[in-house]
């Protein structure tokens, strides 16, 4: 009985995980490539294609990581302002993901969801 519970716990934890070092698979099996900004942008557009979410590929902008601004982005992450920051600066998402703790999947997913909402949700 105790063994069964442990196995179940493992399954839950592994719902959202990095399949490889740079690939994140969400609970809903959404797959995003975090290896670099271009790969991330491609995975976002593929995600939109998979779910019929209309977009203009020229509007999906993911800036390259600016290594020198490490402390700046760390500050945003540490202050838990990453969601609001992406709402105002969506093209800087990969900087936040890059400097985030890869083990803190919650923050990474919040960044991705904020980015998804910015492009998938429309004020009409």
């Amino acid at each position: 009985m105790q063994r069964s519970l442990i196995i179940f716990f493992v399954v839950i934890v592994s719902c959202t995980h990095f399949a490889q070092d740079d690939i994140i698979v969400t609970e809903d099996n959404f797959i995003f490539n975090l290896s670099n900004s271009k790969a991330f942008r491609s995975s976002i557009m593929k995600h939109f294609d998979n779910f019929g979410i209309a977009y203009n590929k020229h509007s999906i902008i993911v800036d390259e990581v600016i290594i020198d601004k490490n402390e700046y982005y760390q500050s945003i992450l540490n202050n838990n302002n990453h969601i609001e920051y992406i709402e105002d600066n969506p093209n800087e998402i990969f900087n936040l993901i890059y400097f985030a703790d890869r083990n803190n999947e919650e923050i990474i997913l919040e960044c991705i969801n904020s980015f998804l909402r910015f492009h998938a949700v429309k004020k009409l």
Partner: peptide, 10 residues
Amino acid sequence: ENYLDAAGFS
């Protein structure tokens, strides 16, 4: 839910 999640509305 599937399409809300896909749009970032988890």
